[in-house]
Amino acid sequence: MDWTNVAVASITVVGTLGGGIVTQVFAIRSKRIDTKAQRDNRAEELRELTRKEATDEKRTVYASLNTTAHSCRTAIRHHLDDKCGGHTPDLAKLEAAREALRDSYSRAQMVVSDRALDFASEVNRSLDVGYRAAIDIDANDAVAVAALYGFVDDSLGFGVRVLRRAIREDLGIEPGADADLDGHLVVLRSNRHEFVRKDTSDTATHQLDALG
């Protein structure tokens, strides 16, 4: 009887201890699972916050690029109007508009897609051509003035609109890749090259005429 009692007591003790250990093991495991779930949730929240910040930054940069490109074209047009209208143009305003575009373009280079950057780069180059031509233009040269007005009104105006479409596409506002945009980019580049060639040719002609 004594050994039987001892055996029963031992079994009871072992069962009690074993149950406590099993309960503790499950508690520790459950705590580890909860900790991992919380860690995963925090990591996902951080990734989502990072994605949102990147998207917000891209939208801010694109808005600045669109605004400064439009403002630069307008400043070129006003400078040309003043110069050819017999008024003294405000060079500081033109310089400020061009510098603002340079800053926006530099920021955009860090965040835009390669496709959108193609358009931003071409429009930036075209505006730079218009900017320099407006500064150098001889207001008494009717042919050169007419050509520059055509470039500013048609090509640069078209370029700013195309850039806006490319930006909207890259942000997912416009549906899918627009094949027309690729064709527009070719036209913009061709217009710039044609204007530069014509402007260079006219300058050389004037220099030859001056030499007699």
Rank of each mutant, 00 (worst) to 15 (best):
V143E: 15
Y149S: 07
I135T: 13
I135M: 11
D118T: 08
F151A: 02
L117I: 00
I135L: 14
A134H: 06
L156D: 02
D141S: 02
Y131I: 06
S126G: 10
R132V: 12
G130I: 10
S126R: 03
D141W: 00
A133K: 06
D114W: 09
S126E: 05
V152A: 06
A133V: 06
A139K: 11
S126Q: 08
S155L: 01
V143N: 10
D118H: 03
I137F: 03
D136A: 15
F119K: 01
D141A: 00
D136W: 13
R132Y: 12
D138V: 05
D154A: 09
I137T: 11
E122A: 14
Y131Q: 07
Y131A: 02
I137R: 01
R115N: 05
S113F: 07
A120G: 13
V145E: 08
V145D: 08
E122C: 15
D114G: 13
A116V: 08
Y131M: 09
G150R: 05
N140K: 08
V143R: 04
S113V: 09
A139R: 10
L117P: 00
D154W: 05
S126P: 01
S155H: 02
D128L: 15
R115C: 03
Y131R: 10
I137C: 04
V145T: 12
A144E: 15
D128F: 14
D136P: 10
D128V: 11
D118I: 04
A147Y: 03
V143T: 09
D128C: 14
N124Q: 13
L127P: 05
V129S: 05
D128R: 15
S155N: 02
G130M: 13
G150Q: 04
A133D: 10
V152K: 02
N124L: 04
R125P: 01
G130N: 12
Y131S: 10
V143D: 11
F151T: 00
R125C: 03
N124I: 00
A142R: 07
V123C: 07
D118C: 05
S113P: 13
A120M: 12
R115I: 08
N124R: 08
F151P: 00
D154G: 11
I135V: 15
E122Y: 05
A133F: 08
A133R: 10
A147H: 07
A139N: 08
A134P: 04
D128W: 14
